[in-house]
Nucleic acid binder design. Structure first.
Ligand code: FES
Ligand code: FES
Lengths: 146, 146
DNA sequence: GTATAAAAAGACAAAAAAGTCTTTAAATAA
DNA sequence: TTATTTAAAGACTTTTTTGTCTTTTTATAC
């Protein structure tokens, strides 16, 4: 399971993408409101994204968060790696100190398949993909009216 | 990802099963040593299992932990549910307050499939299955020599 | 230049998870 | 009966995660 921080990051970045497509740069107050996440915690997570170059920001009046239109599509796994690291994709399913193909735990074979599928999903899914689904009405970003 | 408590529980119960097959009832000191888990924390987790009837224990000299030979095979999901609840299998993949088929988040379709596979795995895998693999040498329970 | 609006930064606080310590209760062996 | 061994119980501590508050920096509008 993702950390709350990773979840908030994904939702926030999707929201920023959607607003950016209308040429607006939302601030963290608006973002946190729209994704139903705590305001200052959201701000801190976005700071981390900016420090790690996943995202850009401008300060001052009219400022906010935005993506460099030149940059390549951002995948979920890049975000997860930035916020909480890769342990979700490398840990042993029953907590052995490392996961190993040669000295596997008794559930390794089955667990590793599922873990790898999840890694593939987060590797192949971009923030733009998710934004598309919100815009097309195939998905939602909050539970305000549902 | 499972909590440490769930991971220790699974490893401990597999170890108890293995020893029970040789008609011995290990204590928590031995168990925690063999599964490389903290001693008192392991004891507390086993207490929870006993309180919830997943496991039995006898106190005093020659005491220890054991399974009722009459009881039906114990699945991983029962253990997980006892220790940390079912949220792993019910939560939204990007943290919406609930997961819903009718108002899905933008990754619901793909995520729910993987989450359900994991639930199937833990539903169909029993502690006995894992113990079998240890005994046959197909798997290990610790990282002492590997 | 001054006021205003926004992100950045960092200290702080609360909650949850993980882990430890000490005492009590129960069973057995002598 | 007494000593010993073991699990149970509960208070406590530490670490990690989550969340808040206050101040500083930066950009813009007037
Ligand atoms: S060794 Fe346990 S999942 Fe790979
Ligand atoms: S609504 Fe997000 S995973 Fe189901």
């Amino acid at each position: 399971m993702l950390s709350k921080a990773s979840e908030y990051a994904i939702r926030a970045l999707v929201y920023i993408t959607i607003k950016n497509r209308d040429a607006v740069r939302p601030g963290y107050r608006e973002i946190s409101r729209e994704i139903e996440a705590p305001e200052q915690f959201t701000a801190k997570i976005l700071q981390t994204c900016v420090r790690n170059k996943l995202l850009q920001s401008v300060r001052g009046r009219g400022g906010g968060f935005f993506f460099d239109p030149e940059s390549k599509p951002l995948t979920l796994i890049e975000i997860i790696n930035t916020i909480e690291g890769m342990s979700l994709f490398t840990r042993c399913g029953i907590g052995l100190s490392k996961c190993s193909d040669t000295a596997p735990c008794p559930i390794h074979k089955e667990y590793a398949v599922i873990r790898d599928q999840y890694q593939q999903l987060t590797t192949n899914t971009t923030i733009d993909n998710l934004a598309d689904k919100i815009i097309s009405g195939e998905g939602v970003l909050n539970r305000m009216f549902n």
